[in-house]
Design a protein around this nucleic acid. Structure first.
Lengths: 255, 255
DNA sequence: CACAGCGTATCGCTGAACGAGACGATGTGC
DNA sequence: GCACATCGTCTCGTTCAGCGATACGCTGTG
């Protein structure tokens, strides 16, 4: 029921963007027919526009279909805000990784989702569904809870009253419980997640606070259930987030 | 004289892409007038299309202009080849960083350029002009030389006979000298760069070889002139590249 | 005050984009 | 073997989205 940010389908540009967004992170190639199905556009239109997108180097032809190209990757990296945030954050994420040797995430809020700006991990990387540039609902991830706990009350209310999508059997879908968790986050400065977004994954996160009201981002450390003890990394995550926060404040990263 | 991949300016899509590509990595916001100047398109056209791009969440309005948005970043991350390469490579890049604590790059070839797919660094990061998603000419970077030395003879000839752009006083612009360097690269398995792309920056790289002829990518370690001794990292870079190469081969990263 | 540069808005004209539909190739079940 | 479905590609007449010349108002600036 969200006012889906659906692109304007009456304009060429809108259709092209719709086609691009029809690709999902995990498919290698998508056939013309599949694109038609996903977008709901006319076959001839998708055929023609896909051809144009290839000509403009936003898509590649491959086997029996299309896939997003390197040119699209390059374009995406022009997003200045993400890039400068990423570049400033990288040293701190590296430190954190080196201290923990677990999967480290950096995420920002967009609507009711968290968008992962960076994900770094080593060989024994947890099987996390997160991807750089990917999305997850706020309410079922540690990063999301960290962002939500420190966000504007209006936003928090919105999320708490809206439907809380169940991702795993452990996802917290009861508003009152979630509210309690968020209160604890503001008390302790860290947020936890226990297999709420993906089975087998636990996580601890801390918000990156700037001068403004809304947190600028959040940092998390994730690992597999069992071996990984999130409590053991509280100090490290908190320190990394705080250090990044004061750096960003000093550099005055504008909204 | 390269058949510049200039987008088709007779189509809406081509113009839109042209506008997007008019943004440079380092500008925060770009005014309408500046976009008009850079693209050569009509003022009214840029005005209208920029509006459409904002409506489709590929651009943001900011202060007195536009800038690439988070939506564009997300789209870019759909590029599957880059993403899967990046995800498989990350652990090895992390190891390399941890061993060296210097700036680590992963790059692939695109035309006569290297495109950086990843860049990780710590606090004492070298002041490198490289950026994730950015480009550099092949002939003046360590990664580029590594890719070039192992590339198809045709490509090597093309680059060597074409103009060799001078980036710094140290850029190698004499074909015969460059050819000699490339020969040494194939003999030793590593490529060097000494302030050839940016003053104050030295670099050592090794190719990531797969089953095919063309190298899949290259890995480099970079640091500031003076303190940083590239020779000291030869073994580490070579090891990382080899390990990644065999992993990619095993996983059969196609094309 | 004159002028230049900017963002925005208007408005007829025209050709790019549209989508119904045809067509050939391939695959699949009977 | 045939009937049928699915797919990618292409054609073609219609029409409306996109076009750009032009105008306007709002800055600064000499």
């Amino acid at each position: 029921m969200p006012v889906t940010d659906r692109a304007d389908l009456d304009t060429v540009l809108g259709k092209a963007v719709t086609i691009l967004r029809a690709f999902r992170p995990d498919d290698r190639v998508v056939s013309l027919a599949e694109l038609v199905r996903r977008t709901g556009l006319h076959k001839a239109t998708v055929h023609r526009l896909s051809g144009d997108l290839v000509a403009n180097r936003l898509l590649d032809r491959a086997d029996g279909g299309y896939r997003p190209s390197r040119g699209l990757f390059e374009l995406g990296m022009l997003a200045s805000v993400e890039r400068s945030l990423l570049e400033l954050a990288m040293p701190f994420l590296q430190d954190l990784y080196e201290r923990t040797h677990e999967t480290v995430h950096l995420g920002v809020r967009e609507g009711h989702d968290v968008v992962y700006v960076a994900k770094i991990g080593g060989h024994r990387q947890a099987r996390a569904p997160s991807r750089t540039g990917g999305r997850m609902p706020l309410h079922c991830t540690a990063i999301g809870k960290a962002l939500l706990a420190y966000a504007a009350p209006d936003l928090r209310r919105e999320v708490l009253t809206g439907p809380l999508e169940r991702r795993t059997p452990h996802t917290v879908v009861v508003p009152s419980i979630l509210r309690g968790q968020l209160r604890r986050v503001t008390e302790t400065g860290v947020a936890f997640e226990a297999e709420e977004s993906a089975v087998g994954l636990v996580c601890v996160a801390a918000p990156v606070l700037g001068r403004g009201d809304e947190p600028l981002a959040a940092i998390s450390v994730a690992g597999p259930t069992g071996r990984f003890r999130p409590e053991g990394h509280v100090a490290a995550v908190r320190a990394a987030a705080a250090a990044l926060g004061s750096t960003l404040t000093r550099r005055d990263l504008l909204r």
